[in-house]
């Protein structure tokens, strides 16, 4: 078995420690004897929908996000949707999450169209949500958010988690992130996967199943991960 990871627009959309998420996917595959490769596909490159099992799509600054949105409006957006229909898994964070929805509506200027891989849309907000986040999914989820976009889910997307500390999708409905098929979007950036290895393993499993049928990943020694997660959760509660 091998795992082919695409860091989508990795040169443009990689702030807030997104590299940690890609590194975690790669290492956790390798630690199980599964060879993992990471390739960056960027604006102007041609995305081959057959090539990758897993797409990581991170956050970017406004200017970079415009370049990416324009590229996704072309053949690469179509190719990405084909890849998803073909069973690839996607993890998207912040800006990547917003661009996988239907659109991003700024205060002024035209809407930035998304690829509609997730039934969500985002509108610009007046306030910036910055801080630690603790949320509940099938297991606790801990991370850090930094966004002003307000994301709302449609009926086909399910929340990834329920907020305990922090704002999440929009600061109103208590939801954080979205899941639709094998596509995940979240506002928890940076070291999301290192501290939430269960989510990393879930995405790796989905990705491997594209070409391998049912996959059961062997357990790893996650002592360091668990300690980091528990400390981060305790700190987030203390400082809320």
């Amino acid at each position: 078995m091998d795992l082919r990871i695409c860091h989508l627009y990795g040169d443009l959309m990689s702030i807030y420690g997104d590299r940690g998420n890609v590194l975690t996917l790669q290492r956790r595959a390798e630690w199980r004897g599964i060879a993992a490769t990471v390739e960056t596909v960027s604006a102007g490159d041609r995305l081959d929908p057959e090539r990758f099992d897993l797409y990581f799509f991170g956050g970017g600054q406004d200017a970079q996000q415009d370049i990416v949105a324009a590229d996704l409006a072309g053949p690469n957006g179509v190719a990405l949707k084909e890849a998803i229909a073909g069973g690839a898994a996607v993890l998207s964070v912040c800006g990547g999450y917003q661009l996988l929805g239907h659109f991003y509506r700024p205060f002024e200027g035209p809407e930035l169209p998304g690829v509609s891989a997730l039934d969500v849309h985002t509108v610009a907000g007046r306030r910036r949500f910055i801080g630690n986040v603790v949320a509940t999914a099938e297991q606790p989820l801990v991370g850090f958010e930094n966004h002003s976009g307000l994301t709302y889910l449609g009926p086909n997307a399910k929340p990834l988690a329920t907020i305990e500390v922090g704002a999440g999708n929009n600061g109103e409905d208590g939801s954080e992130g979205a899941v639709q098929g094998k596509v995940i979007g979240t506002y928890l950036h940076g070291s999301l996967l290192p501290k939430n290895p269960w989510l990393a393993d879930k995405v790796i499993t989905w990705a491997l199943e594209r070409r391998n049928g049912h996959v059961d990943l062997p357990a790893l020694d996650d002592t360091a991960e668990r300690e980091a997660r528990e400390h981060a959760i305790a700190l987030a509660h203390k400082r809320r």
Partner: peptide, 14 residues
């Protein structure tokens, strides 16, 4: 991760 350090420690992954 106090204010003067930056409360977001995800930079260590970069």
């Amino acid at each position: 991760d106090l204010d003067a350090d930056g409360r977001d420690v995800s930079w260590i992954w970069d």
